[in-house]
């Protein structure tokens, strides 16, 4: 039985694609057969973050329209076994994603024995975002410690509770809050919303806090999901998040201001 997880946020630029890439890689690293799907029709980017942009032949919409089979369109990830990428289409046709079509792709992946299907949602609350969340069992809501992101996350939570298949059937999409671009130093000085503040406002169980980190940009530059950078704080935080998602109890890290030694303070 496949578990469908949407990575969503409402607001753009908070780290949905970075998170989808890291999350899917983390699941596959642990042996789960995983597919990660880019729902951002017209603005394909997951392929770049996953480093498979030059191997895109067919896309999500081709599969929906019957122009390619799932097998043809799925790209085997070169970094991680068990991981497959389904890129978004670059078409400008906004209605390319139909509920029926997306449902068929989900069924196809289920039949192929995928354990996890990670849906990378586009920003906004339009069709693409709606389709990304519709079939979800779980939702990872990515939030930055910043007013517009928190507000948009609350909007998205409202949609998860009303506009999904689970909601229509009287059930619930399991919600998980992932805070990204967190800066403990700025929280300590009172210029950034703290983790507790965000939790109090959104009232969703916390699954991880990813610190603001240079390694995220480096990872995207090279097309390597940041979770593979095991020495980086962001990579480690994403790894903790995946373990928690799979049911392990892992204490949160990177919440406190790092105490720098005298020499480090002098020389950075």
């Amino acid at each position: 039985m496949s578990r469908i997880v949407v990575v969503t946020s409402g607001k753009g630029g908070v780290g949905k694609t970075t998170t989808s890439a890291a999350f899917a890689t983390g699941l596959a690293m642990r042996g789960y057969k995983t597919a990660v799907i880019d729902f951002d029709v017209g603005l394909r980017n997951l392929d770049l973050i996953m480093g498979c942009e030059r191997r895109v032949v067919y896309d999500f919409v081709n599969v929906i329209n019957g122009e390619a089979s799932l097998k043809q369109a799925l790209i085997r990830d070169k970094h991680t076994e068990n991981l497959h990428v389904l890129p978004a289409s670059q078409t400008r046709d906004k209605d390319a994603l139909t509920q029926e079509g997306v449902g068929r792709v989900m069924d196809g992946l289920r039949d192929d024995g995928f354990d996890f299907i990670v849906c990378d949602s586009p920003a906004g609350i339009e069709r693409g975002a709606h389709m990304a969340m519709y079939f979800a069992d779980d939702a990872v809501v990515v939030t930055n410690p910043e007013v517009s992101s928190v507000r948009d996350s609350d909007r998205i939570l409202g949609l998860l509770q009303s506009k999904t298949q689970k909601a229509e059937q009287g059930g619930n999409v399991r919600e998980h809050l992932l805070i990204t671009r967190y800066s403990p130093t700025r929280v300590a000085s009172g210029e950034m919303l703290g983790m507790e503040d965000i939790l109090e406002i959104l009232a969703v169980p916390l699954i991880g806090v990813v610190p603001e980190s240079q390694s995220v940009l480096q990872a995207s530059n090279s097309g390597t999901p940041v979770i593979l950078d095991k020495t980086s704080d962001a990579g480690q935080a994403y790894d903790d998040f995946v373990r928690r998602f799979l049911g392990e109890t892992v204490p949160h890290r990177f919440l406190e201001v790092e105490k720098k030694g005298f020499l480090k303070r002098l020389f950075g």
């Binding site: 910043e146 928190v150 609350d154 409202g158 009303s162 000085s189 210029e191 109090e200 406002i201």
Partner: peptide, 23 residues
């Protein structure tokens, strides 16, 4: 420095409470 995070939290609590009621 004025604790701007505190201001952010208060503003968010108010606006989100309103929006939740509406939806």
């Amino acid at each position: 420095k004025p604790n701007s995070a505190k201001v952010a939290k208060e503003r968010l609590q108010i606006v989100i409470a309103h929006e939740r009621l509406d939806r």
